[in-house]
Design a binder for these strands. Structure first.
Lengths: 139, 139
DNA sequence: TATTGTTATACTCTATAACTATA
DNA sequence: TATAGTTATAGAGTATAACAATA
């Protein structure tokens, strides 16, 4: 009786997740260089486009009440502004300040750099990997 | 003057990270089904092999003092045991209980399932992706 | 009535510094 | 002296429930 083997997709997922996990310390360290916490870095990333508290909570996959504190801290740091939303006086629109844009841009540039394991691949394999992922994610 | 484009490795990394990020709510929900927190699930994952507090801290990329609380909660849940380490009376060896093994095994089985975006790929592309990642990560 | 965001509360995760028991 | 783990402390992230203002 043969041992049941994982499907190729499962193994690919396991490897892919391991790679992302292994990079976490690097990403956290980059956030630290800008003196913000990992989750605050995530918020900055998502605020490339202005959006409301509720939309942000949705994209973070967390409760609304949680976003209040996250945004409080970023606002105190001068990276984010709460503005009245035009269509609904209950809602608030979150917008990056100049400084917020600067931090988001420089931080993203560094985080976007490929991990050593990918950067070391032959160029043809890098392209093959990119194309497979593009198609899988519908890009 | 041409716009500078990301290298294929950078774009692959961006897509790959997006995929892992998009799966986080699913993984957290699975941990929740076993009534443990995401970080406790990570500890369980890493305890496939017994190890000391310090080794676990190293693999979690966090401080030693942090592990004390994490293990306290898992121990109260009856999933982990602290045992004396033979080679060093200062150290403690962490070992999963029977119940801990059961939870780790069932939880891992579910978390290992490939995300929809990968499972939906043609079989040949799944294998190609797996093989590229295997080689990149040296497996 | 329902929804947006806040507050109050409680728990988890995190690091730093001081401590203990061993090495 | 140095190291493994704990404790004390403080701050950050998280969800739930109750609330104010608005829809």
């Amino acid at each position: 009786m043969p041992v049941k083997t994982d499907s190729p997709a499962c193994e690919a997922w396991t490897l892919l997740y391991e790679l992302a996990l292994a990079e976490k310390p690097r990403l956290n360290a980059i956030a630290g260089d800008f003196e913000i916490k990992p989750q605050q870095a995530m918020v900055l990333r998502l605020l490339a486009e202005p959006q409301t508290m509720g939309e942000l909570a949705e994209r973070l996959g967390c409760d609304n009440s949680n976003v209040t504190g996250l945004v409080d801290r970023l606002e105190q740091r001068g990276l984010v502004e709460r503005r009245p939303a035009e269509h609904d006086r209950r809602a608030k629109l979150l917008v990056l300040t100049h400084e917020g844009e600067r931090v988001r841009s420089e931080m993203s540039k560094r985080m976007r750099q490929a991990p050593e394991a990918l950067a070391a691949m032959p160029a043809a394999e890098q392209r093959a990997l990119r194309d497979l992922l593009r198609r899988a994610l519908g890009r």
